[in-house]
Design a protein around this nucleic acid. Structure first.
Length: 244
DNA sequence: AAATGCGACAACCGCGTTCCC
DNA sequence: TGGGAACGCGGTTGTCGCATT
């Protein structure tokens, strides 16, 4: 707490939510004296509020031209477009939306468009989705291995048949050594491939491309809970959600 | 039914700018 | 022209009510 705030409390300045009586006093003051000279509000009305607090209350809540109610889709569009052009210049954006305050627009933006650190529940859901995706990847991989093995078995049977036919014909004329060795090598290699299950034990999941690697890396950071705790680090904006 | 999470919004705070003497 | 008061702005925090677990 700074010196001024401390002094305010010592002198009995009120803080926190405004009461209906305070609102009425402030409204009557503005009706009589106009906006401005906020520091004289306390003196002339008996309000125990700082000039700063009075101005904020008037601008953000009591002004008669304020528009109440939800931000409309049209207004949301304007906010998005202006924010893309102006950045966080809330007062400039508010000037283009009659009846809306900079505070209101700022709050709306932060609630709807600024990426927040996912909650514990959201992180658990992300982890669950990730595990399901991994299971599905592994299942597809094993299935493809199984199909490959079936194909290899068919090839092996074919080769064995050809080999037997060859042996039978060679009984009439001696085989060429190179050819026989090549056939035996192919058969031998196929045997060493092993069953799909044993192969799967050594298999690794497909290596993700760069984008996927980044995604999973981010995911693990979220799951591990070592993301920035206060959500105040830079670069955390993302594109607008689809309005509901 | 109680605990917890989350969105919405009001209000506060610090700092930069403007105004006035 | 310098300094202090007033004002304006953007970031942050606190609170409340509803939804979900």
């Amino acid at each position: 707490m700074d010196a001024i705030s401390s002094l305010m409390l010592q002198e009995g300045w009120r803080k926190g939510p405004w009461t209906a009586l305070e609102d009425r006093l402030l409204t009557e003051y503005v009706q009589q004296h106009g906006e401005g000279s906020w520091n004289s509000v306390a003196e002339l009305t008996g309000l125990r509020r700082s000039g700063k607090s009075c101005r904020l209350r008037w601008v953000n809540y009591l002004r008669p031209d304020l528009k109440r109610g939800k931000i409309t889709p049209d207004e949301e569009t304007v906010i998005l477009q202006l924010h893309a052009m102006l950045g966080n210049r809330w007062s400039a954006i508010a000037r283009c939306l009659p009846g809306r305050t900079d505070n209101e627009i700022k709050n709306y933006w932060r609630t709807h468009f600024k990426k927040a650190r996912p909650s514990r529940r959201a992180r658990a859901q992300l982890l669950h989705q990730y595990q399901l995706q991994q299971q599905e990847q592994r299942r597809q991989y094993l299935q493809s291995l199984h199909l490959l093995h079936q194909h290899q078995q068919q090839q092996l049977q074919l080769l064995q048949q050809q080999s037997q036919q060859l042996m039978m014909t060679q009984q009439q004329s001696p085989p060429e050594p190179d050819h026989q060795a090549a056939v035996m090598a192919m058969v031998s290699n196929d045997d060493q491939q092993g069953s799909p299950a044993s192969t799967a034990e050594h298999c690794t999941l497909p290596v993700p491309d760069d984008d996927d690697a980044l995604l999973w890396d981010s995911l693990w950071k979220l799951v591990d809970g070592d993301g920035c705790a206060d959500g105040s680090s830079g670069g955390e904006y993302y594109t607008a959600r689809t309005p509901v």
